[in-house]
Design a protein around this nucleic acid. Structure first.
Lengths: 221, 221
DNA sequence: CAACCAACTGAACGTTTGTTTAGTATTCTG
DNA sequence: CAGAATACTAAACAAACGTTCAGTTGGTTG
């Protein structure tokens, strides 16, 4: 909606400050006055540009969603990412944007649902297409559900970036951090971590405990 | 610290209301008055019991951490959980407790770090011991780092419970939800999802791009 | 029964909150 | 260069905030 050219305006500066502060102190915990002070303007100007504090929140959401989609689209076009997919590309976003993204996902807001659904949709396509191309062996059950579980796993690393950064000793919001964690992720995904027999047995046990996918509406115990 | 017996007091009721509201509206977004109203007491009583709003926050943290550790200890003693470990047992906690846990993990607080480290510590032991017992084939590099990545993945499902609940059609904060997602998780962990050759190639590419684990302190780019 | 202590409330406190309003610079437009 | 729109501020507003304080209740103890 807003072009990149006019994106260095005072309005943009205010928004960028908000994007930085909201994840840190929460929405209610971030005051309009604090944002204004950080942006070097009066509190009234913040509301002049965004109507209300909630309006500023919406503008931040929109911007971050826009940037995320843009980054993914670009990554897909240039092919500059590898399996398991779209999320890896996200890490090319600026750090505050990533922090905001992780924060939003945890709020359970409508924006969070939108972003999650977007990721799931894309990974679903990658699963189905990948299967045809031989990149994917076999997904369990519904590809959309398989994608959702996969996306949740990947985003877990994003949402817990602070903890992972400490554990791995590399900033997880940078490409370097993603690279550092990738071998560990791949070790898990490759099936080389857990013993095959134990897993197969566990899988069988779980599937026996569960009703068949068709048999719905059973009385609870 | 506090026994289970005296845990149905007014004090406990106030704390339980706080545990329910903090994840929903955030710390700053939850008012002492709202908590008092929900607990059916005066705002002054909240501060009488907990000293301050921040004191209430600490009490909630302590309680949830205590319950989490207790649940894990019990699960380990009875052996009532399977790989990949300690996190699965956590799902036996009450739903508000789980929501609070997920929220805290996202705040990056000291409590979050404590809980994460606790999980990582336990999973690390499981990895090392599991390898001796043949349950674990081979972890990549440092077992603690491998555990951290594993824990982050698993907790991703917890933190994104709202989204996963929608995607899978089962409440992810119940044992039923965990069971429903398990086959999808296992499909990923078993190595049956992604093509082996593609993964091996990706792994090799990444390891080539990275310096050897020993060679530290290289100039950036 | 007196003395005490913890549980609990109503009312008020000073502060901070988001927002409004009236007005001043600055920039665009014909 | 007049005029209109836009960018921006200082000051003030009512509402809501966390917290305090003085006081009441109800059970326990000597």
């Amino acid at each position: 909606m807003r072009s990149v050219v006019e994106d260095l305006t005072t309005r943009a500066r205010i928004r960028d400050v908000a994007i930085e502060r909201f994840p840190k102190d929460g929405f209610a915990g971030t005051t309009v006055r604090a944002i204004a002070k950080n942006a070097g303007v009066s509190p009234a100007l913040v509301l002049h540009h965004f109507g209300s504090k909630e309006g500023l929140h919406r503008a931040c959401d929109e911007y971050v969603v826009h940037m995320t989609m843009e980054m993914k689209r670009e990554a897909i076009e240039t092919g500059a990412y590898r399996e398991p997919g779209a999320i890896a590309a996200t890490y090319q976003l600026a750090e505050p944007t990533l922090r905001y993204l992780a924060w939003t996902l945890g709020t359970g807001s409508e924006t969070a649902a939108r972003i999650f659904a977007e990721f799931v949709g894309e990974v679903t396509v990658q699963l189905v297409q990948g299967k045809e191309q031989g990149l994917i062996n076999e997904y369990h059950g519904d590809p959309q559900k398989q994608a959702a579980v996969l996306v949740a796993m990947q985003l877990g690393g994003l949402m817990l970036h602070d903890q992972l950064t400490r554990a791995l000793g590399v900033d997880m919001l940078t490409a370097e951090g993603l690279m550092a964690s990738a071998p560990y992720t791949l070790q898990i995904f490759s099936g080389e971590l857990f013993n095959r027999e134990v897993m197969a047995q566990t899988k069988q046990t779980i599937e026996q405990l569960q009703p068949a996918p068709d048999a719905k509406q059973r009385a609870t115990k």
